[in-house]
């Protein structure tokens, strides 16, 4: 599966970027992958938020993507 991650605090890139993922991976693993991809500072606290048509939904980092209800093609914001 593929999810689309955006880092709103990064004023260089404003769109969501594709990150290969799989339903059984922990959301923390996805977060680590994305922070590395964007070169975000280590040691800071970040969170993931799923975006959908009617609003936002927090992603629990200790749960898998499937347990968080994340699907192929879902847009996510990485907040820090």
């Amino acid at each position: 599966m593929l999810v689309w991650v955006r880092v709103p605090s990064d004023d260089r890139f404003l769109s969501h970027q594709g990150v290969p993922a799989h339903p059984d991976m922990k959301a923390q693993e996805l977060l680590d992958k994305a922070t590395q991809m964007w070169g975000l500072p280590e040691g800071k606290t970040y969170q993931l938020v799923r975006l959908h048509a009617t609003g936002q939904q927090p992603v629990h980092l200790d749960k898998t993507l499937q347990e968080n209800g994340l699907r192929d093609g879902d847009p996510i914001d990485l907040l820090g």
């Binding site: 689309w4 769109s15 970027q17 594709g18 990150v19 991809m37 964007w38």
Partner: peptide, 27 residues
Amino acid sequence: RKMDDHVMAVASPGLPAVCAVCQIPCE
């Protein structure tokens, strides 16, 4: 101006999500 020192300073780290209609990155 971020490109003044390095022309690739604004190169995207990945491939973008595009608009489902016009196919231009949602930006």
